[in-house]
Write a protein that binds this DNA or RNA. Structure first.
Length: 513
RNA sequence: GGCCCGUUCGUCUAGGGGUUAGGACGCAAGAUUUUCAUUCUUGAAACACGAGUUCGAUUCUCGUACGGGCUACCA
């Protein structure tokens, strides 16, 4: 980048509800770029639309970022030299810039009522205009300070008539900018409309607020979703009109996250519909009671989440796809971000989570599993849980799987798969298995290697094959045919528990047949 | 409709004027494993179409088609 100026990026969502992975991915790309360049990550709330305010949404977003490991350097809850960071609290700053634009001839007052605007659009479309717009032609016929006499304008202003301030888009100018991801993008102002900058309720629109704030907060790069590309020329026009063009941030418009199937960008309902969450955390809308489920609660690891999200539209360059957050930062670069929309693939998300679970130690997993165990009413020694997790981790896709698929490790009350018992248990071998149980009971060292040796010796003595012995042991120990290696399982369970299970199991098997 | 953006295996993508077009998920087969999972090996699977430029286009240019975004006093 040019100069020694430190890189400053912002993530500036609108608190209108929880943000799905599309929004968090935008935050992530901003974050990765910041970390890569040793810059500052600013969090700002764009709450200029009071009608869409949803209580709790801002906290939800902050919590999501925190969970994901995206740390806010400056902004809401953190503070910083350019606050406040909530646009509603900056309300008073915007008016002066809007007025300044009017004074300089770059903007104008407009008095049209919503009904009049509606009427204009209807009239134009009935005349065959497919895209009615308040533009350099239309404004001549509307009620604004350009079409009205100065007296009339002043009279309306003085009498407190409702008005907005609109950007006076030039008639025919080429407007181009170099997007960091897309290269040169060209627009002609003749196609652009006179966007409202300042609303009649005294609030700025996104267009004004975002430009003013980015300038005041010394933002160097704006990394946002592709849905903003069409309004980029309006923003550039604003920087120009405000005289800030020489410090204008660079723009990078990210490809969108698309639905897993069907068409269009990912949206709210796609999550629960597909049985796979697309939000970070659980959420209940306080206004509607609507509930959505989160990836965190489902058992997704934050680092896996970042890894997966980063891969949606960005490519690290090499063949290595499973990466730690540090590795992500290290190899991140905007010019390895693709241009086309990326479809969200739940299967790959699962796989990446599984890979990250495998990278963790048993103790780390035990800690993550604690809420699941607690909810299930299971209490166990931390060391035991850690060992159990170590044993189960190759089988888990989500954290709770560690327990769900290994329930038999956490309690002696087993559910037996009777069909399989019927298949594997031979009554005539009952005595033999009793003998094996006794041999195991006599073991001084109940370790994996000792157990393994004992069982093997036993099979040799009795001329039995592994296929005749191991499944039966497993059935008595775990109730079913799935799980970690038998000897490892026994070593973990300990002599007493194993002996109980075998005794009880063999007895039960006889009655089942 | 208009404006803007895009288009390599089903999905995420690498590549880039001359390649057997590479990897990953998923899928299939096999090996390992008492089982499941893991792991390993192998396989099927793609440059949207048409022109042009060129000795040569998947790669460059232009069209077409298709997909997406925007088109509010929402962000």
């Amino acid at each position: 980048m040019e100069n020694a100026g430190k890189v400053r990026l912002r993530y500036a969502p609108s608190p209108t509800g929880p943000q799905h992975i599309g929004g968090i991915r935008t935050a992530l790309f901003n974050y990765l770029f910041v970390k890569k360049h040793g810059g500052t990550f600013v969090f700002r709330s764009e709450d200029t639309d009071q009608t869409r305010f949803v209580p709790g949404a801002e906290e939800y977003i902050v919590d999501s970022l925190q969970w994901a490991g995206i740390t806010i350097d400056e902004g809401i809850h953190v503070g910083g030299p350019y606050g406040p960071y909530r646009q509603s609290e900056r309300k008073d700053m915007y008016r002066q810039y809007a007025e300044q634009l009017v004074k300089d001839g770059h903007a104008y007052y407009a008095f049209d009522t919503p009904a009049e605007l509606e009427e204009m659009r209807e009239r134009m479309s009935s005349q065959g205009n497919p895209s009615p717009a308040y533009d350099h032609i239309t404004r001549q016929y509307m009620k604004n300070s350009l079409s009205l006499s100065q007296d009339e304008t002043e009279k309306r202003l003085a009498s407190g008539d409702a008005y907005v301030i609109r950007l006076k888009m030039p008639r025919n100018e080429e407007l181009k900018f170099e997007d960091l991801i897309r290269g040169w993008v060209v627009f002609n102002t003749s196609q652009l409309d006179d966007k409202v900058l300042f609303k009649s309720d005294g609030m700025p629109t996104y267009h004004l607020a975002n430009v003013v704030d980015d300038h005041l907060m010394h933002i160097t790069h704006v990394v946002r979703g592709e849905e903003w590309l069409p309004s980029a020329p309006t923003h550039i026009m604003l920087y120009r009109s405000l005289g800030w063009e020489d410090t204008m941030p660079r723009f990078a418009h990210l490809p969108l996250v698309l639905k897993p199937e069907g068409n269009g960008k990912l949206s709210k309902r796609d999550g629960d519909r597909l049985g796979f969450p697309i939000y970070t955390l659980n959420w209940e809308n306080p206004l509607t009671g609507e509930k959505i489920s989160g990836l965190a609660e489902r058992g997704f690891l934050p680092e896996a989440y970042m890894n997966f999200l980063a891969l949606l539209g960005w490519h690290p360059g090499g063949d290595k796809e499973v990466m730690t957050p540090e590795e992500l930062v290290e190899s991140f670069s905007l010019d390895r971000v693709g241009k086309s929309g990326a479809r969200f693939d739940p299967e790959k998300a699962k796989w990446i989570n599984q890979q990250h679970i495998k990278m963790k130690t048993g103790a780390e997993l035990a800690e993550l599993l604690a809420p699941t165990l607690e909810a299930a009413g299971v209490s166990a020694e931390p060391a035991f849980v850690a060992a159990a997790c170590e044993l189960m981790k190759d089988r888990a896709v989500f954290i709770p799987d560690l327990y769900e698929q290994g329930k038999f490790l956490f309690g002696d009350d087993l559910e037996y798969d009777e069909k399989t018992v019927a298949k594997k248990w031979k009554k005539e071998n009952a005595g033999l298995f009793e003998n094996l149980r006794e041999r195991l009971f006599l073991l001084e060292q109940f370790s994996e290697s000792e157990l393994e040796r004992t069982v093997h010796d036993f099979m040799e003595d009795k001329g039995l094959k592994a296929g005749e012995v191991m499944p039966v042991l497993r059935l008595a120990l775990a109730g079913g045919l799935q799980g970690p290696p038998v000897s490892a399982m026994m070593a973990l369970l300990g002599k007493e528990s194993c002996d109980n299970r075998l005794k009880k199991g063999f007895q039960l098997f006889n009655t089942l047949i």
